[in-house]
């Protein structure tokens, strides 16, 4: 097994925020990793952000498959203070807010698509440039 210089050795036992391809964010202590960036998180919480609100949910131990990982961010205690300007709300509230935001986005997307189709553009193939 050959590790490059960018191995995750330094991040072991540190508190990380993991951003997944579907946009979910998990925060936990990384205990194990391998060359595919498969990782095991301990004391994991899922955190949802909507606008300037956020909420956490405790989940426990997580194995995260490497191919779904986008970023592993080391949480810096000094910078964490900046996050204090966000307000913590209940899990139910954040779920409602997230759903509202999703619907708004969907509506915007539909309007965009309608306008483009009306002007004779079908850009589906352009919109889906990245298979992400």
């Amino acid at each position: 097994m050959s590790f490059g210089n960018a191995s995750l050795c330094d991040e072991v036992d540190k508190k990380l925020i993991v951003v997944l391809r579907d946009g979910k964010k998990f925060i936990g202590v990384m205990r194990t990793f391998d060359q595919f960036a498969n990782i095991i998180l301990q004391d994991t919480i899922e955190r949802i952000y909507v606008g300037d609100k956020y909420s956490d949910k405790h989940l426990g131990v997580f194995f995260i498959r490497g191919d779904t990982v986008v970023i592993l961010g080391e949480i810096d205690p000094d910078k964490e203070v900046k996050e204090k300007k966000l307000t913590k709300v209940s899990w139910e509230e954040i779920n409602l807010a997230q759903q509202a935001e999703r619907e708004k986005l969907q509506q915007m997307e539909q309007t965009k698509r309608r306008i483009m189709t009306e002007s004779g553009l079908t850009i589906d193939s352009i919109l889906n440039l990245d298979d992400f």
């Binding site: 925020i17 986008v70 970023i71 592993l72 961010g73 949480i75 810096d76 900046k82």
Partner: peptide, 18 residues
């Protein structure tokens, strides 16, 4: 991207880079 506020160092998986 409020989740990046508290991040100083990060690891980016090669496959997600455009």
């Amino acid at each position: 991207y409020p989740y990046m506020l508290s991040v100083k160092n990060c690891f980016i998986r090669g496959s997600v880079v455009r």
